[in-house]
Design a protein around this nucleic acid. Structure first.
Lengths: 354, 354
DNA sequence: CTGAAAGCGCTTACAG
DNA sequence: CTGAAAGCGCTTACAG
């Protein structure tokens, strides 16, 4: 029903191959060429017919499908979903469709999805490393089979695959520094362990270095309860931790997501503790309402837009050129001061870091 | 490199067509059949080889690609992104890949994307109607060309395409009823106009019916400022509206998203107005932290999970059977009471609605 | 019940 | 500089 390369060839009075070459990317011109005049004639006819190459045929015959595969963890606080959306939007601007897969941090799903991308002729892949999914055997090999591939990692990875190091640790240290610099003494960090171990360590080490009171109690573990929202989960964790009138002794809490921080502030309020006067609270991810909460919620800014821009740049430059020397980018998250953190903003941004 | 149908055929000592038929869905068996014994032999070989059909070849030859296209508006408050993610996850459970496109509420992009889905062999489509995107000429026709298609609409649509009516209006009326029943007299609704006109009307009409004071001022327009977050935008709108000491006279505000409601509460607090004592506030979308805000934020529950389940059911039943009589579902949003709305919960849910 | 053949719409060597 | 041909890996009539 839609016009094929055959139709264009007939009307333009050339062979099908001429059409293919004329309409394809410069790379098709290898060995074979079409004169500028026939080329523009072909383009004219194609435009008139509204010709769009059949993607499956192109892919099957060895050409590009103009498809980007996105392999992301979309569960949990919604920000990761908006990240995927950002990448998809940029991809479409380049004329690329996107296939979206939630790898759920599962190595088996990850590998299976990458192979599925191959069978589907996906040209390039961007994937997020979570929970060491990249350790999956064979993953480097299959990533290498795509025309372009980028991984977003929280820890540098020892391969030649393009990577963006989206570093959480400097921000964790900044939070500790800010607490110390603004006079807090008894810090705590509230999160689920496993994926967050390095953040926990960075925060607590930095807190200890600044002579704060770091004890075993400073880490309050939030269990994994996928049926609960983060807020609910944090709230219950605090309830369980301090039931039977057990003393709450902290003056600064770092929550590893904003929802949990909101719940924490609420919980503190019901205990008669004020934020930031009695307890400083900092969240993570810096959601768009943080500035309008009461008190405004300090957080860690992800800078996902920068990550998306870097992905865009790497993928589409390698997709258009044949030069594909491995690329590396570094994008650190950073502490975003607001009143809930206590003290003053300028303090930690300049003084605190100097 | 990966095994082809040819390889399987050779080892199983049958023809390629036999393999195709044996491994394909029941529909392939039309006219042609394979004995149970050869079939299981073929399946055995395929399993041993880890055979996965090449999707592009399948699609090109007229078969299914096991791909679902998702055409959604992903901008704005992040909830829509998590909706797309929900659909994608369900799709993968059925062995279907997903192509995600943000149609940005633009008719041209919508039509272009649907055609692109066709060229790519996408089997089924689910799309969200926003801003009357479905009015685009030719859209019914192209939707009909897919094996299955579902649209999610806020107003019933007069075609035979499968549709899910995700109705916002009952919830808007419930909010008005609740305000009236709990003694409020001067309601306002705060939102951008255009896409929300029918919600505004439902709210204000219902408020008037319950003898509240509805005036021209009751609608406070939030301008479209895509560079601002919703919270920021609502805040500024209130500032602009009541600058120069202009009197704030409302005792109940309905904000058409939660972020805006959070900003509104913050703005009221700075004016010395308490929620809900002086002003009742209700948001929209019922985000996961609403219950942990101070005061807990009443809202409108979208029930997106129900919508996703309905999409799943319709799409994949039509994809597996050839029966495809048009389906319709009705899923109303509903008012979710919390303290910011004033009065009492049971009140509006039972008494308020009776 | 099974196999040989044509064809889906492209790309890419390979001759001219 | 251009065209005829083979082939990508499948599905689906169509003969046997």
């Amino acid at each position: 029903m839609p016009p094929t390369i055959q139709d264009i060839a007939r009307v333009a009075k050339v062979s099908r191959s001429a059409v293919s070459v004329a309409l394809g990317p410069p790379s098709y011109r290898s060995g074979t060429r079409v004169s500028a005049s026939t080329r523009s004639r072909i383009e004219e006819v194609a435009r008139k017919f509204g010709y769009q190459a059949n993607v499956m045929a192109k892919g099957l015959a060895g050409g590009r499908t103009n498809t980007l595969g996105i392999l992301w963890s979309l569960t949990g606080p919604h920000l990761s979903a908006s990240m995927a959306e950002n990448i998809a939007l940029r991809s479409h601007r380049h004329g690329y469709a996107t296939q979206l897969v939630n790898h759920l941090c599962d190595p088996a799903i990850t590998l299976k999805s990458l192979n599925d991308f191959k069978r589907r002729g996906v040209d390039a892949v961007v994937m997020q490393d979570v929970n060491g999914v990249l350790e999956t055997p064979g993953i480097t090999k299959v990533l290498g089979e795509f025309t372009a591939a980028v991984v977003v990692v929280s820890t540098p990875w020892k391969t030649s695959i393009n990577q963006i190091h989206h570093d959480r640790l400097p921000a964790c240290r900044q939070v500790a520094q800010h607490f110390a610099a603004s006079g807090r003494r008894r810090p705590a960090i509230l999160t689920n362990v496993g994926p967050n171990d390095r953040k926990i360590q960075a925060f607590l080490e930095s807190a200890a270095q600044h002579s704060m009171d770091v004890t075993n109690d400073s880490l309050m573990q939030v269990p994994n309860r996928p049926d609960l929202s983060s807020a609910e989960n944090y709230w219950r964790t605090l309830e369980e931790h301090f039931e039977n009138g057990r003393q709450f002794k902290f003056d600064a809490i770092f929550c590893l997501n904003d929802e949990g921080a909101v719940a924490t502030i609420n919980w503190l309020a019901r205990r008669g503790l004020r934020v930031p006067d009695d307890v400083a609270v900092v969240g993570f991810n810096d959601g768009p309402i943080n500035g309008f909460l009461n008190p405004p919620l300090a957080s860690v800014e992800r800078r996902d837009d920068q990550v998306a821009a870097a992905i865009d740049e790497i993928i589409f430059s390698q997709l258009s050129q044949s030069d594909s020397s491995p690329q590396r980018r570094y994008i650190p998250m950073r502490f975003a001061w607001r009143e809930s953190a206590g003290g003053e903003g300028g303090f930690s941004i300049s003084g605190g870091l100097s």
